[in-house]
Design a protein around this nucleic acid. Structure first.
Lengths: 206, 206
DNA sequence: TCACTAGTGCGACAGCAGTTGCATTAAGAT
DNA sequence: ATCTTAATGCAACTGCTGTCGCACTAGTGA
């Protein structure tokens, strides 16, 4: 998961690396100044000093640029916070999500927008989410070990339920960010999970 | 909320109405045959037999076309199902949402995609959601009257929590539709709501 | 130091999106 | 029937996106 598709003996040396650095810096700067809507391959190329054709060849489109920027800036040893309680862990996670969707410039928000135009961006985003949700399953495992949750809890379903309201409000509904929403969504999901809502597909009261 | 912006004495008679019908039919057909990605103003114009310029003038862009199609096909007297229980009502609502996002062609999915390119589509979509969520508050009121929920329950927050997992899974995460998800998300939200998770901002255990 | 070639620069090109000015048609009013 | 003008048709234009062939630069290995 590094930069662009290799084609045989790649040559990651001086100039190539410099080109990539210049282009990614330009993407970041354009994103900060004009936002995602104004982000075009041409503007990035002009700003970076690299030729249009080179950008098109190596990154294909705006989605490719954002994907590479994401790979370059993401820390590969990310792990969920350990606050000692399921609710606290989920709240911390939700705060991170709200932060990443609200900050300016938001690479996450830009990537989501780009995923509707670029198949590469869509795949990159799904890989990212799959990776993150996978790591977060640890949160659920810890809660089970603490006896907070029943064994057999569907970690992925719980995590999606806890985080979905944030994405829905901020990305789709376009609601202004509510500082209490991360905690509230976490608390709600934790409450339902404790009641066994994510265990063996059956919900209390069914 | 009818068709296009009027500019004085509008003239909704024969030819204008015929043009609109032809264009909307073409949008629907293009959407069905080639999907949203291939939906361009030009292709719609060509198929409808109406001139490019006319489409650009009356609908501005793809978002405007989808907005008008939505207005034309939406029933203004929609109301949530009354199944006798909160959980049942939410499940029915979620089934409708899953249906609208999964059917081919999905105007809803296309409109969501378009909302990232067209400001008009974005506003139309938010109006639609605001309208729907507003009508669905009735579901929560009924539940309160039945004694299923505590008074003072935040209807909008509950509804968003109940429906968010569907949008998140289907639209953002790109997960294939799970036939049990509508019921499960509804049951989870109903469970949390009964425990007071959406009452006066405080959650049980805080 | 030298040869090989991946990567880049460059210009030209096709194609689509969206706009503008003007001519034409037809809806609605008298 | 006649007039007014909203709505449409038409053609030309700008600007942006993405591609292609060719020349050239500079890593990389010998």
């Amino acid at each position: 998961m590094s930069s662009a598709p290799p084609s045989g003996r790649t040559r990651p040396g001086g100039r190539t690396a410099r080109t990539r650095a210049q282009v990614l810096a330009a993407v970041s700067a354009e994103l900060a100044e004009h936002g995602f809507d104004a982000l075009t391959v041409d503007s990035v190329a002009a700003r970076s000093g690299v030729h249009r054709t080179t950008v098109y060849r190596r990154w294909r489109d705006v989605g490719g640029l954002l994907t590479d920027l994401l790979d370059a800036t993401s820390d590969d040893d990310w792990q969920p916070a350990d606050t000692g309680s399921l609710r606290g862990d989920l709240a911390a996670l939700n705060r991170e999500i709200q932060q990443s969707l609200t900050e300016r410039p938001s690479i996450a928000a830009a990537l989501i927008a780009a995923s509707f135009r670029s198949e590469e961006a869509a795949r990159a985003l799904r890989r990212l989410w799959d990776d993150r949700y996978g790591r977060c399953e640890l949160v659920v495992e810890r809660a089970v070990q603490r006896g907070e949750l029943p064994p057999g809890t569907d970690a992925r379903a719980l995590l999606v339920t806890a985080t979905a309201p944030l994405y829905h409000q901020l990305v789709l509904l376009g609601t202004p960010p509510d500082p209490r929403l991360p905690e509230h969504a976490a608390a709600t999901a934790a409450l339902a999970a404790r009641a066994g809502a994510f265990t063996s597909g059956d919900v209390e009261g069914e």
